[in-house]
């Protein structure tokens, strides 16, 4: 028996709006430790990992591990019926293949789960989520890849289009900067990755969920873009960099 009750449907709505374009169908794996979802996009170039902890729910009962295959667009459409302040309850009986009052059809999705090594990163940047979203959107109008370079001074975004190039440099702020404007950098060594902007722009749909975004980079490894949600936990997006031919 699974019974989840969330007092603020708005948060779940924002979570779904931020992932439904990247991934169409995915398994919600619910256990006593929380609900997690890990899925790759159709091109298998990007991946997302979502964790919703039990203490973010008003009521969380999960008698045994259950995996619910869902079409995220249907789930997002269904949740649109709830206003942000509504309470949403998700029930799933072990045997049945539907959830809650909306009788949403569950699907059987064979998804391969990937193991993400908790490796260290050469550079970790924390910056305002809205600034990162605006930079990705603006650069997306000029080129389709962005070179993100981190040095101890700051983080630089460079893109080259047919008619022009754009270079945005965000300087690291002093420790006294207000949290919502702070740009902090932990760095072992300078690192630079070239990434497809359309995926980064898709990741920034999660901007409403968090004030800050954490960008973790290691040369030649997937970039990790993480939005920490104050009560629920996190959404992490992974994107493989482009490598020179």
């Amino acid at each position: 028996m699974l019974e989840l009750r969330l007092t603020r449907a708005g948060l779940l709505k924002k979570v779904l709006e931020s992932i439904r374009d990247l991934v169409t169908d995915a398994n919600f794996d619910c256990a006593a430790t929380g609900c997690s979802l890990q899925a790759m996009d159709s091109s298998r170039v990007a991946m997302l990992s979502l964790l919703l902890r039990p203490d973010g729910f008003e009521h969380y009962r999960c008698d045994r591990n259950i995996s619910m295959g869902m079409n995220l667009a249907n789930m997002a459409r269904m949740l649109r019926c709830a206003s942000d302040d509504d309470t949403v309850t998700i029930n799933a009986d072990d045997a049945q293949d539907k959830i809650s009052d909306y009788e949403m059809k569950l699907m059987h999705i064979t998804s391969e789960n990937l193991e993400i090594p908790e490796a260290g990163y050469e550079a970790i940047v924390k910056m305002p989520a809205s600034l990162f979203a605006r930079i990705c959107k603006d650069l997306g109008t000029i080129g389709d890849t962005v070179m993100i370079s981190v040095t101890k001074e700051g983080i630089q975004f460079f893109t080259r289009g047919d008619i022009r190039t754009a270079n945005i440099f965000c300087r690291k702020t002093t420790p006294v900067a207000k949290e919502k404007e702070a740009i902090s950098i932990e760095m072992e060594k300078p690192v630079s990755l070239t990434l497809a902007l359309r995926y980064l722009i898709s990741f920034t749909k999660a901007t409403p969920l968090a004030k800050q975004v954490t960008i973790s980079m290691s040369y030649g490894r997937p970039i990790v873009v993480e939005y920490k949600m104050e009560i629920m936990d996190h959404i992490r997006f992974y994107l493989v960099p482009k490598v020179e031919e």
Binding site: S43, V45, A46, E115, I116, Y238, V240, V243
Partner: peptide
């Protein structure tokens, strides 16, 4: 524009 590898090149399936 560089080569785009798959994410499964980096994270092995469990």
């Amino acid at each position: 524009q560089g080569v785009q590898l798959s994410i499964t090149e980096f994270y092995r399936t469990t």
